[in-house]
Structures are given as structure tokens and as C-alpha cells.
Computed example of a mutant assay.
Amino acid sequence: MDVQKYLQRIEYTGSRVANLDNLNQLCWCHATHVPQYTLDLFGGEGKQFDLENIYHKIVQLGLGGFCYELNGLFGNLLKLLGYKIELLQGSCFMQSSDEFNFPFDHLLLKVCTLVYCV
């Protein structure tokens, strides 16, 4: 993965030092420059969950993706920049039925700097 091209894609021009301020800026740039394609999950072609294909789609083609693609690739970027990353899965809780709805889950990132975990 070409870190510089990824940072250009999200228009991040700040420091590459792994700290909380830079993490906040990286998250902001990623969230405001890469669209989330929620409907991507329904129909269409099969999903490729390897970083090379996701990088091609999001960085080289300038497209968006859904949470597993976006958070997976973004987590890899953060790891290359020196952050400690843990991938987590979350499920939606449906208040109407008072239960978790497992078909609808989400990929989350737990990110740590030397001082903070967010």
C-alpha cells in the first residue's frame, strides 16, 4: 500500500507522528473524503476482502466502500503510521424486538497511540 497516495486521497497534509491530534485529523479527513456505500452490500458483484483490491477501489479509483472495506483499509494505514490497531465487530441492537440483529454488523477500530486509546 502506498501511504503517500492514500494520504493524498483523503487530503491529509499533517504530520505522520502517531499521536491523538494527528489521529483526530486523519479520522476527519478519511470520514469527509471517502464516501460510505451502505447499499454496496446488497446485490451487485461479490466483495473482495483483501487489502490490495480494497486499496485499488478506494485510493486508485477514488470510490468509497462499506465499513469492512473502509475501516479495514483505514486501520491498515494507521498501523503503517505507527498506531496500535484492534479490529472489533459490533452488532445492531433492535429496540423494537429487544434483541441483537446479527445479520447487520459493523467493523470498528480500536486505535491506540502511546498515551491514548480511542
Score class of each variant (00 low, 15 high):
12 Y>V: 14
116 Y>A: 15
28 W>G: 12
34 V>G: 02
59 V>N: 11
35 P>G: 05
10 I>C: 06
67 C>H: 00
11 E>G: 08
31 A>H: 05
13 T>W: 08
54 I>E: 01
53 N>K: 05
47 K>W: 08
7 L>C: 11
57 K>F: 11
96 S>P: 04
5 K>N: 06
107 L>N: 00
15 S>G: 03
41 L>F: 06
59 V>C: 12
31 A>C: 02
106 H>C: 05
41 L>E: 09
74 F>G: 01
111 V>D: 02
91 S>D: 11
118 V>M: 13
61 L>P: 07
21 D>R: 14
111 V>I: 01
22 N>V: 10
18 A>C: 15
13 T>K: 13
47 K>V: 11
91 S>P: 10
20 L>C: 06
110 K>F: 08
9 R>K: 07
44 G>D: 15
69 E>L: 07
105 D>G: 03
99 E>H: 04
83 Y>K: 08
112 C>P: 00
32 T>G: 01
9 R>I: 09
102 F>H: 12
105 D>L: 00
95 Q>S: 11
97 S>D: 10
83 Y>F: 14
7 L>G: 08
103 P>L: 07
11 E>L: 10
60 Q>E: 11
6 Y>P: 00
26 L>P: 10
78 L>P: 06
15 S>F: 05
97 S>P: 08
99 E>I: 02
33 H>F: 04
18 A>T: 13
110 K>T: 10
34 V>D: 01
25 Q>D: 07
79 K>V: 11
21 D>I: 13
44 G>W: 13
19 N>L: 09
13 T>H: 13
51 L>N: 05
41 L>P: 06
94 M>V: 12
16 R>V: 15
29 C>N: 09
3 V>G: 10
92 C>R: 14
5 K>V: 03
18 A>L: 14
81 L>C: 06
109 L>S: 01
67 C>D: 04
4 Q>E: 10
74 F>L: 00
8 Q>H: 14
26 L>R: 11
58 I>Q: 03
115 V>P: 05
52 E>C: 06
37 Y>N: 09
69 E>C: 08
4 Q>K: 10
112 C>M: 00
78 L>K: 05
115 V>M: 14
68 Y>P: 03
47 K>G: 07
110 K>Q: 15
96 S>A: 08
2 D>E: 07
113 T>F: 03
106 H>I: 06
90 G>W: 02
37 Y>H: 13
106 H>K: 08
38 T>Q: 05
76 N>M: 15
22 N>M: 12
111 V>F: 02
4 Q>C: 09
63 L>R: 13
11 E>T: 09
37 Y>P: 03
16 R>S: 15
109 L>R: 01
114 L>M: 07
44 G>S: 14
93 F>E: 07
84 K>F: 12
90 G>Q: 04
7 L>E: 04
7 L>I: 13
101 N>A: 11
25 Q>G: 01
55 Y>R: 04
64 G>F: 00
67 C>Y: 00
33 H>M: 08
1 M>P: 00
104 F>C: 06
18 A>Q: 14
100 F>A: 02
